[in-house]
């Protein structure tokens, strides 16, 4: 049982990194980056490529992956955001879809379609913790994600760059008037967002593998997490991501937790992962209709 919890927490913390990147771009430029899921996939493949060159644990590869992905994020801003920055946000939505198509097919052409596994963060295998057996990788994912989320917090709250990032997110014109070079800050935001997505890719690509078509699934998770957590709220996105993972893993596990449920007619149908996905979307619709500001309130004032 606790093992299931650890698994869902590991999945959720990787989703959280992804959603964090999504919400940073959202706040900086008020546009949805639909390539965010494909950036996770790209991060996974970058990790796989480094893993083939250097036989070292994933934690050593992490800085390399972050740097490469930050460059990719900078390039994403250059081709898909800056040319369209004076257009309505929907233009960026579509240009990032095009970038997603390019990334996905580039990965397919370079690496082939077979699933790949990146090196584990420290070492594979299992570890016994107070009587329960959990995978080392799952614990490592949770730890690394927690450190990265904390780093993001420190970067944004305690550094000059962070102040500029926040100022730009709050009011771009005002930031410009204060002498902040907004374009640099936006480029940095894309770089950070892509680096976080890449980290998620590295973390996921060991336990859960990576294939070129993974992006579509991840972007939906990030999008839902950000809406559930409250549009534009950074802590909300993290919590939303954890909730999604918890729901995905916990609902199908209910018959294990409450043994009586397994005997109900249609239990295997009701507690399947497909039904869990359907319920996730229905819950999302309910949240949108009943509480459009998200569960934790809306941080960004949308422009009318």
């Amino acid at each position: 049982m606790l093992q299931v919890l650890v698994n869902s927490l590991a999945l959720g913390s990787a989703y959280a990194l992804l959603a964090l990147g999504f919400v940073l771009i959202l706040n900086a430029v008020n546009a949805v980056n639909f390539a965010q899921g494909d950036l996770v996939m790209a991060g996974g493949f970058v990790a796989v490529a480094f893993g083939m060159l250097l036989p070292v644990p994933g934690i050593v590869l992490l800085p390399l992956v972050l740097v490469v992905m930050a460059l990719i994020g900078r390039a994403l801003a250059a081709v898909a955001y800056f040319p369209l920055k004076s257009r309505p946000p929907v233009s960026v939505f579509i240009s990032t879809i095009a970038v997603g198509i390019i990334l996905q097919n580039l990965a397919n052409a370079l690496f082939g379609a077979e699933p790949r596994a990146a090196p584990p963060l420290f070492a594979g295998g299992l570890v016994e913790l107070g009587g329960i057996v959990v995978s080392r990788q799952a614990l490592a994912i949770i730890a690394v994600a927690a450190v990265m989320i904390a780093a993001q917090y420190v970067l944004f709250q305690r550094t000059a760059l962070g102040r500029r990032l926040r100022a730009t997110a709050q009011d771009r014109e005002m930031a410009e008037a204060l002498g902040i070079r907004v374009n640099h800050v936006i480029a940095a935001t894309f770089a950070i967002a892509a680096a976080y997505a890449g980290a998620a890719g590295l973390l996921l690509a060991n336990t859960f593998f990576v294939t070129p078509t993974d992006g579509g699934n991840y972007i939906l998770k990030a999008y839902i997490a950000v809406v559930i957590g409250g549009w534009g709220s950074v802590p909300g996105a993290v919590v939303g991501a954890l909730l999604i993972a918890l729901f995905e893993v916990m609902l199908p596990s209910l018959p294990l937790i409450v043994p009586g449920l397994a005997g109900l007619p249609g239990a295997s149908w009701l507690f399947s992962q497909t039904i869990a996905t359907i319920l996730l979307y229905l819950m999302l619709l309910v949240v949108l209709v009943v509480r459009p500001q998200g569960l934790f309130g809306e941080a960004v004032q949308r422009r009318a």
Binding site: V90, T274, T277, Y281, L282, L285, L288, R302
Partner: peptide
Amino acid sequence: PVLRLETHYFALATLGIAQVLLLVCLL
């Protein structure tokens, strides 16, 4: 329920509806 939602909320809500339809069709 969805038409009164704004921009990206509306986009996601409609995307959710499309996904549910696909999954129901598979099941």
